[in-house]
């Protein structure tokens, strides 16, 4: 039996309201999108939602006390807090360059965490 679900597409500020027709765990049809990225987003968001995590880690020897970082790829939404826990253990020392790897393979995702600011 088919059911429906609604999702707001967040790929751009258009924020299209996507309507999904589902068959069990499968997305059969998507409507409401205004560009071709919509259906792929809906399918991914329904089956395996992922996010880029942005947060900060401790840094010493810089003018400020936090270094902003991000995952350099998307990670499953369900493990954001596991990543936060791992990153709370990280302590960096200045200088750090924007793009430098801060933590490899965070929470076993295969995704690295990189610095998003150069601090000296």
């Amino acid at each position: 039996m088919s059911t429906t679900a609604n999702l707001t597409c967040i790929l751009c500020p258009m924020s299209c309201n996507l309507e999904l027709v589902l068959d069990g765990n499968r997305v059969v049809q998507v409507s409401g999108n205004s560009c071709k990225l919509g259906p792929a987003y809906a399918e991914k968001e329904f089956i395996n939602p992922t996010r880029v995590l942005t947060t900060t880690v401790k840094i010493e020897g810089a003018r400020v006390s936090r270094l902003p970082v991000k995952t350099d790829g998307e990670i499953p939404k369900s493990i954001l807090f596991d990543c936060m826990r791992e990153l709370s253990e990280v302590k960096m020392k200045a200088p750090v360059k924007n793009g430098e790897i801060i933590l490899k393979n965070v929470a076993g995702t295969g995704v690295n965490v990189v610095a998003t600011r150069s601090l000296t």
Binding site: V52, P68, K70, N98
Partner: peptide
């Protein structure tokens, strides 16, 4: 503004605030 989503038009990619500033 350490979150991402900056620069989708000008830079054609999703940057964080510090990256956009850099």
């Amino acid at each position: 503004c350490i979150h991402d989503g900056f620069g989708t038009f000008v830079m054609k990619e999703r940057l964080t605030g510090p990256e956009y500033a850099e």
